[in-house]
Design a protein around this nucleic acid. Sequence first.
DNA 1: AATCGTCGTTCTT
DNA 2: AAGAACGACGATT
Length: 186
Amino acid sequence: MKQGVHRGVFKVREGWCAAAWTPKGLCALILPQVSRSAALKKLTSYLPPMPRSFWDDPLKTVPPKVRDLVRKALSGKPTNPGALDLFFLTPFQQKVLQATCQVPAGQTRSYGWVAGKAGSPRGYRAAGSALNRNPVPLLIPCHRITAAGDGLGGYGGGIEWKIRLLEREGVKVRPKEGKGYRVFHP
DNA sequence: AATCGTCGTTCTT
DNA sequence: AAGAACGACGATT
């Protein structure tokens, strides 16, 4: 039985983050929330893909390496994802997320591009589903995946976060006339 | 704006 | 164990 997934919370300028990790690396990250309990609650909602027995009960202190990485990424600077342990994801999801890690800060790619890299050129919609459940947002930069034309696409953590993260990396995002947002791809 | 094709995942039988 | 339903899509009409 694989076991020993630890949980913890830490504070950043924007609020409270929660994280889950093993000795091998990070399993899940929650974007800053208004409160410590809100962050933990969100983290708990990531349990379903992973058996409850995988988790430790008492909270541990999040590794400084992770905290630094998150703060750096939040500032919009280029970062590596760091050590990850995504053993609970399907092969397709792993390929999608791995492809996502290839897009540099300040740039964007389409869902179709990611699908192609994952080996399903017409699976862009499935790629969207995979990205929607990215357990490590920010570090796996799913905010850099936008719609094919000039649309923004969605974001699991809330569209406002996607806009904020892209703008911090220097990507221009403007409201469309009517509804939605327009992205200026490089 | 409405519709349809496509595909991995998740719910239902 | 199938089959239906469901999207952070994309192209067509």
